[in-house]
Design a protein around this nucleic acid. Sequence first.
DNA 1: CGGGATTGATGCGTTTCATGCATTGAAAAG
DNA 2: CTTTTCAATGCATGAAACGCATCAATCCCG
Lengths: 307, 307
Amino acid sequence: MKRINPDLNSLRAFVVLADSGGFRPAAEFLGLSGPALSRQIARLEDGLSTRLFDRDTRNLRLTPSGEELLALARRLLQEAGKAVEEFEAFLAARRGRVSVAGLPSITAGLLPPIIARFVAGRPNLDVCVLDALSDKVAAAVLEGRADFGLTAGASDGAGRLAFRKLLDDPFYAVAAPGGPLDDMDEVSWEDLVALPFIAMAQGTSVRALTEAATVQIGAAFEPRFEVSHLATAGALVAEGLGVSALPGLTLPVIGGASLVVRPLKAPEVTRRIGLVFLAGRTLSPAAQELIDLILRSPRDPLGHAAA
Amino acid sequence: MKRINPDLNSLRAFVVLADSGGFRPAAEFLGLSGPALSRQIARLEDGLSTRLFDRDTRNLRLTPSGEELLALARRLLQEAGKAVEEFEAFLAARRGRVSVAGLPSITAGLLPPIIARFVAGRPNLDVCVLDALSDKVAAAVLEGRADFGLTAGASDGAGRLAFRKLLDDPFYAVAAPGGPLDDMDEVSWEDLVALPFIAMAQGTSVRALTEAATVQIGAAFEPRFEVSHLATAGALVAEGLGVSALPGLTLPVIGGASLVVRPLKAPEVTRRIGLVFLAGRTLSPAAQELIDLILRSPRDPLGHAAA
DNA sequence: CGGGATTGATGCGTTTCATGCATTGAAAAG
DNA sequence: CTTTTCAATGCATGAAACGCATCAATCCCG
């Protein structure tokens, strides 16, 4: 038996004709000429090897096969319409799922207000935020667990990741009010590392840059405390147990407003914050939209969440 | 926003390409040349205003939009396949519903074995048998409650019903063994109506023909009993309460084998049994199939169920 | 009872569109 | 560095759909 292959346009024409009860109005509705519709129906009937309408010049009535096909065609067209609608919603970034991997300082500070604007009016769009340390961020993007990442400029060796710089995030010295920084306008790394130092754990971007800075000034790096989470570091500083060097973006997260924060110089160290994504891969419309929104957002190095 | 109209063939090509991971094998599978498939995908992408594959000469990978469309296309194609399958089943008379209206003598005698053969191997085909008196049969067909009818030749005045003769069903005289017919080879209407007569109720084809016969011989028609159902008539006859004149098709229904049955002559009265259906209307494949089966079946006027 | 009007089908010419062949350009394999 | 493979493109061919004009049948109205 030869395979019959219904054409959605023919089915649509058939349904319209069945509904309108005449070739003329149906053809007009479809934007076709009468003969075109007549032939389209004839083709459909021929393809199905069945008469679909009992018709003469005056009457038009569905045959039982036509009735049967009408039900099936309606169902199929409805399915098709639903599919188109879903796909259009996906294309318009109103539906789908965006997965963002990011450093904790970014996902906690920079990202939330942007996501809030992003999901507004997009009730069917899921956003998944993956907060992880910088190497894990790159891994998540490489493995496809995240559509893109927000991290400190780390280029993957294989060149499979592309980087788009967002901002330079300068380091600041932080201490408790009444602590050693009260009287200083700005702080040098040399001065800072001489104080009891609260360092971030290995594997964080902050740690890597902190070590680089101490190496650069030829100082020994002997932290008094070592913590994994920013909140802990902030709490220790607030308690006056030590000082630390942190990028501006982290300050809102640790409650920098109630701490003494001073620009950190000699050398001036900045964390290059940017987007990473798989090179050569098209992003989902929703992910692209979120990226565009991030790029258009004001990028205050101090973290605009503090504003 | 312009209306996008997916073509099932394009979607099929897209799915095949996504599954086979390369243009060459996909094109071969689809029975197309490479360029044809390339353009088909390009058209699809153009129609959707989206890139569906990230591709260079060596790699072919779905974009997120492609992944999304793939799921939707699979679903839609599966729906389409199911619809085609259902429709083919309908066309092949393996699915659907046939509604037959018929005189009780036919629906009880002639029809059951035919229906038995008809539904064999058609588990999804519903058969609805409507047994009714002759005028109700015609009405059921006219009103569309039955696809066709099996009745005694009655033509609707408006000519909206077509009749197709099946057989001539001659009348027989019936009586109980040990009754008045035992010694006779054949019986005349005149002899029969002189005996205690069991008549069918008004509105039955049997009654109409019985009355016509008595009028024809100029006799009075004074039935001793009058019943609506054949089984009752048969039981009364078997009990020796009277005789009756019944068409051959009714005999198996009333247990004619245990009665005395004699050909009834002078005049020879026959009931024209045939199919009625709406003129100019195409029948459903299943109904047509059942009709063909009826036409091909042996038509023993005595009722082949007795064989 | 008869002519005009309406409706769907058909013949024909045109246009559009998809396909196939040949070629190009790019990337991987030897 | 050459060869091979693969997808994209130019070009020409062929098929399919469309519109216009016409035809046949029916209904409406005078």
